[in-house]
Design a binder for these strands. Sequence first.
DNA 1: TCATTAAATCGTCATATCGCGATATGTTTA
DNA 2: TAAACATATCGCGATATGACGATTTAATGA
Lengths: 114, 114
Amino acid sequence: MDHMVEGSVLWLRVKILSALSDPTRLEILNYLAEGERCVCEIIPAFQRSQSTISKHLNILYEAGILDRRIDGKRTLYRIKNPRILGLLREVDAVALDQIAELEDAGRILEASIR
Amino acid sequence: MDHMVEGSVLWLRVKILSALSDPTRLEILNYLAEGERCVCEIIPAFQRSQSTISKHLNILYEAGILDRRIDGKRTLYRIKNPRILGLLREVDAVALDQIAELEDAGRILEASIR
DNA sequence: TCATTAAATCGTCATATCGCGATATGTTTA
DNA sequence: TAAACATATCGCGATATGACGATTTAATGA
């Protein structure tokens, strides 16, 4: 990410994809798919420290994936662009294709043993 | 990626997204969208060393994104699942939404100055 | 105003990633 | 079989990332 111009489409693509390529952040997005939640609700939902969750939320925010608003002493986060959920479903589709392929290979192997 | 079970859907999702979250690899995929190419063609198309390109290709291969076949002394790589191209288009759509949003903000700012 | 609560930020480890040159492996060709 | 070619792999330095506890910032409420 060094030779890239900040704000270029390639740079944005990488920023979005990097933000998504972490298991905790994917689970947070899954959790937020239900709707807006405050940090105080998100923290207990995951086995991570407050500072870790806060950092993950900020990464998703900086990548333009989450939006946030402050309400009193709480901060509420929500998915900014619902298109991101479609994107994640596409990732799932690719992952499921890979699993199906493995299962096929397994069946063929089993059949060849018998 | 520590508490995850290898082969789980979450693990696969992260593996796919991590493989995609690098500018060189995104450009390689863009290049391979045209069709199968040998490593000897891919290397000169990018400002990276042979070993670096080879490693990037292997990461994409390990993530199940590319397929490869050996033909004589060359290795040919191609996109395995065309669905990955749809996925990348979705990423672009999100990135373009973000650019559009920035441009809107710019227009509003400009108008407020005048 | 002082204590409490909520969240962000800082400092620091441990680990992962990217890049490169050097080297190893394998294939064709002379 | 030796030289040349194509690619993968190794080893290493520089930088990035993720995790945590401690600290800071900010708002509320007693």
